[in-house]
Design a protein around this nucleic acid. Sequence first.
DNA 1: ATTGTGGCCTGCCCGC
DNA 2: TGCGGGCAGGCCACAA
Length: 258
Amino acid sequence: MPEILEVESYRVRAESVLRRAIVRVRTPDAWILKQGTTPRQLRSLVGETFVAARRRGKLLLLDTAGGPTLGVRFGMTGVLEVDGAEGVEQLRYASSRRDPGWVRFEIEFADGGRLALRDARRLGGVQLEPDESRLGPDALEITAAQLAGALDSAAPLKARLMDQGRVAGLGNLLTDEVLWRAGLDPARPARSLTSDERRRLHRELRGTLRQLMRRGGSHTGDLHDARVPGAQCPLDGAALERRTVGGRTTYSCPRHQT
DNA sequence: ATTGTGGCCTGCCCGC
DNA sequence: TGCGGGCAGGCCACAA
C-alpha cells in the first residue's frame, strides 16, 4: 500500500532517471491512463528528458524541460521500477512476483535503462499534467496551522486526515498509527479537538512519518502487527476495536484513544 | 458545499 | 486438493 513514505522513496529513486533521453513509451494497459490521457499524448514524451522528480502526497510528478509533466499514482499495489530495481524493497500486499503482465506503463531511455509502473491490481494510474491544486498540503511538510485548517469539519477525524484534498499523503495504515500514538479516537468529529490535542496530533504526525520513513515504510508502525482481529493494544493491552471509520477498516484502542 | 456510500480492480488467504 | 467468498484500499462517481 504505497502511502506517502513509499512514494517518497519512489521519488528518490526516480531522480536517477533525470537528464536521460526518453526514446520509447509503452502503454500496454490503457486502463491505467487517467483523465483522458492517451497513448499518443504519452508518446510525445519521446525526445524529452525529465528534469525534476517531485511528489505531492501520494502523487509522483516527473517534469520535463519543455514538455508536459507526467503524474504517476500507485494505488494500493503499484511499484515503481527503475532500471529493473524496485523503489521499495518490501511492499505489504504487493506481491514480490515480477509478472511481466503487471507492467502497465514503461519508459525506455537512450542508455537502455527504464522506468516502469508495475501494478498487479490496476489501481494505479498515469496521466499528463495532473491537477496538483486538488491536493492539500503534503503530510511531511504540513504546518500546525495548515493541519488546524484541515480539521475544521464535522467529519470524523480519520476521514479528514485521509481526505487527500485536505492533507495529502496519509493512507489507512499511517492514519491509524498516528491516531493511536496521539491517543485520539478516529471517529471523533475533527473540529472537536482541543488546541492541545491538535498540537499533539501535529507532533505525532511529523514524528511518526519521520520514524517510519527511517524504519522502512508504512507497514513498520508500532500498531501495525496488531491490526488483526482479536489483537491487544501494544501500549496498554486493552482489546483493540475494529470498525469502519471514514469508509475504511479502522483499528483503535478504546482505552487510550479518546 | 459537505459528507457518506458503493464500485472498480484482482491477488491472496481462509474455510470448507 | 480445489474452490468460492471475503478482504485489502486508493480513488472516483454518485447520492443525500
